[in-house]
Amino acid sequence: MRPAVAPVAAFLATRMSQEIAPKLEGFSAGNAGMIGAMLQMMSEEWDRAASRLVVENAAVRTLLQRAGEVLGDASFGAAAVGDDLDLRISSLDAANDRLRRVLTAAHARVEERDGVDARALEAAIWDELRASVARRRISSANF
């Protein structure tokens, strides 16, 4: 689509927040303000979503394979199998959700495990979780 979606959504966000919302009152004004803010979030997410999901899914798959080795549990490695050839956001999101649920289970298990390998894996999981928050960060967020 041209003009590109991200700048158009950002443009609409500005029009909604600065031009339309101020002309409304009360509940409607609040809704218009939130719709403007959501358009801005959509603008940011539109361009980066596929990229961040592909990067993240690959990172989590690597962690799950490692968890399978450290924890001696082949199910983690099996859960890591897959690819992201379907680049629709809905497909990438579904894979991401599944992978991160398994990562949550691996994280809980590794916390209970002693040893240098377990501590190193735990640190790597936290590194990925920190990176995931950075990938998802919204410019309008309070924190």
Binding site: M34, M38, R136, R137
Partner: peptide, 21 residues
Amino acid sequence: DVIMPYAAWWLRNAQDRAVLE
């Protein structure tokens, strides 16, 4: 209500970031 998806979009990642801190 508009605030329902708005808050979920706007706050969930920021709350995760607060946990990290």
